[in-house]
């Protein structure tokens, strides 16, 4: 019979546990990036093109950017509980981070749309393009070039911010590694591995974004 001591060292069987953590981190990142980008494009476009959405979404953007994410997670979590629909940590994380990413993206989209010269828009409208045709074939592609590097930066930010969802009980990579540290007492080894994972994801993306910025500037 084998007896497990409370402090047992790292074992091979811990790897699936960490892999699950990585899976949870990536899952939340992908959900957030997809929903956040769609939301950001919508809010950015709406705020740029008419007056009421500009006023309506203003406070949301202001508040989301001035309150720590941790508090946003806790508030939304207890709000769902109060409303009588306790939601899973993944849902809480997905909702809060998507709104957060949407807000950051919407500001980029707005700046991108504003960077398109009005003469170009007028020229394409006078050529007989409808509003939507102009948006999709002229303004959109031009704005995309201005928005893309900043958007990549936001994706990196959100990847790192998934680590904070642990405050409402989501066991992503960093939380998983902390649990492992508590059990095995191998803080440095586990943390180094965890840091390496985030770095491997984020560093190439940030390099890519920087080189892209240079290329776009020289064009």
């Amino acid at each position: 019979m084998q007896i497990q001591l409370p402090y047992s060292g790292l074992q091979w069987s811990d790897i699936p546990f960490l892999l699950t953590g990585i899976y949870h981190t990536l899952l939340l990142t992908v959900i957030t990036v997809v929903l956040g980008t769609l939301l950001g494009i919508f809010i950015g476009w709406a705020r740029e093109s008419s007056k009421y959405p500009r006023i309506m979404f203003g406070p949301l953007i202001d508040v989301v950017r001035s309150i720590p994410l941790i508090i946003q997670f806790i508030l939304v979590n207890s709000f769902f509980a109060m409303a009588g629909f306790p939601a899973s940590p993944l849902v809480i994380g997905g909702v809060v981070l998507s709104i957060y990413m949407g807000v950051l993206t919407s500001e980029l989209v707005r700046a991108g749309l504003r960077s398109v010269r009005p003469e170009l828009k007028k020229a394409s409208r006078s050529l007989g393009l409808t509003y939507w045709q102009e948006l999709f074939h002229v303004s959109g592609p031009l704005a995309f070039r201005a928005v893309f590097p900043g958007w990549v930066g936001t994706v990196i930010g959100v990847t790192k911010d998934t680590a904070l969802v642990s405050v409402v009980g989501y066991v992503e990579l960093l939380r998983a590694s902390q649990i492992l540290i508590n059990r095995s007492n191998e803080a440095l080894l586990v943390l180094a591995g965890t840091g390496l994972f985030y770095f491997i994801i984020c560093y190439p993306i940030s390099r890519y974004s920087r080189s892209l910025e240079k290329v776009l500037k020289h064009d």
């Binding site: 680590a163 960093l174 540290i181 984020c202």
Partner: peptide, 18 residues
């Protein structure tokens, strides 16, 4: 690059637990 490409919470853990 380390400061920018890893979560702030990771950096805190590294100092506190590491």
């Amino acid at each position: 690059e380390l400061a920018r490409n890893t979560p702030a919470l990771f950096q805190i853990y590294m100092i506190y637990f590491g």
